[in-house]
Design a protein around this nucleic acid. Sequence first.
DNA 1: GTCAACATCAATGTATCCAATTACGCCATA
DNA 2: TATGGCGTAATTGGATACATTGATGTTGAC
Lengths: 230, 230
Amino acid sequence: MRTEKSPDGPDKDAGVRSHAIATDLRAGILAGLYAPGTRVRQEELAERYGTSRIPVREALRDLESEGLVVLVPNSGAWIAKTDINECVEIYKIRERIEPLALSESIRNMDAATIARLADLCAQIEASTEVEDFLKLDREFHLLSYKAAAMPTLLAMIERFWNTTQHYRRAYSHLIGKEGQWIIHSEHRLIMEAIRRRDGMDVQHLLESHIRRTRLQLQANDLPGLARTGK
Amino acid sequence: MRTEKSPDGPDKDAGVRSHAIATDLRAGILAGLYAPGTRVRQEELAERYGTSRIPVREALRDLESEGLVVLVPNSGAWIAKTDINECVEIYKIRERIEPLALSESIRNMDAATIARLADLCAQIEASTEVEDFLKLDREFHLLSYKAAAMPTLLAMIERFWNTTQHYRRAYSHLIGKEGQWIIHSEHRLIMEAIRRRDGMDVQHLLESHIRRTRLQLQANDLPGLARTGK
DNA sequence: GTCAACATCAATGTATCCAATTACGCCATA
DNA sequence: TATGGCGTAATTGGATACATTGATGTTGAC
């Protein structure tokens, strides 16, 4: 983590340690480097990043507001535990807001983006590793929303994708390659509706896509992920 | 702002200065004590609350994540400017998520809450002062969602009500008492649908309620509130 | 007279140090 | 042996002091 300014392109977080720490921690959590429920000690992180505890504390605050970390006053910080109830709740919210984002987005979407989406769609079908699938699927959906002139909504959606990342990983392992044909079909239909710029159709298709996933999550109860009652 | 522990009931934020400061600042912003765009100096707040700048900084961070304050690294903090585009965006989101919250809520709602809602509904119609209307209207809607077992969603909704507070105030002044009959009628219909626990109907009615308000906001362009390009 | 470069200042970002709270382990006792 | 109280250690919350960045005003040259 360098401190001097980068010559290649402006570093948005240049000079602000806490942002850099938050970004790095967030990436680590999403990559699965930290087990949910793990205690996070400020001093330990401070040493790792070569700073004092102050920027670490601010980074942890940011991550808490994103739902990735839980802070308890005078006690400590923990990596947020996975909670199937929270996950289901978030999926219900996503069923409502992501169709909105997509329908707004396709009104402004340029040809290059549509081509890129089609490319991603094909890569997703060709993927063999779960981690590849997760990365590509995320890029496909988030890119499809990007042309919507709704920054607040897009930030919310990304936050929700982050907090449910562990469940998507577990779910992907669960269904395996043979269960993916449904997802591929849904993606193809969505892709086609995007091409037609059919706002109503994409909304229904995307809602079904998310809703079906939620119901499957609820039905399978995902072994290996602790369900916290606190 | 007392520092000793309160004997009457556990103070959730006891011992955590930053939460107390954030709560107080948030209330001040929502009450209109700070003009949007006003610069906020850490040292000034620290002096006012009798603390150092550390808790102030953390409070400002919290408020930033709620959209009430804007932080610029190495520069400072400002009370978030009102932005008609952001307001419209949030209303579009609310049109999707609040019907979800309400339909989930009425499934669990007890009789006492329904009675309280009816009471609030009547008080809203009887209100003469804008500030009273704002307070009652907010309580009515947020209470109607409260029985939904969706904490993340409810937190989001409250956040949105906060960031658009200034617009609701301006809007209320704009339409005056004579324009309120539409709102009252909508509230009555929603109230009746809640009584019947008609999930589909409440969703449509609430969506219309929010959507109509949004369109009126967009049409009137609310004089007196700066529209920032930034 | 205008513009540019520099110096000074003010406000934020960070490090170090101290205080307060919590957690844990030990010991005494029933 | 199990349990309750107490004391110590570890960790977080906050205050003070210093470093760094950005803004402002002045001065000099063209």
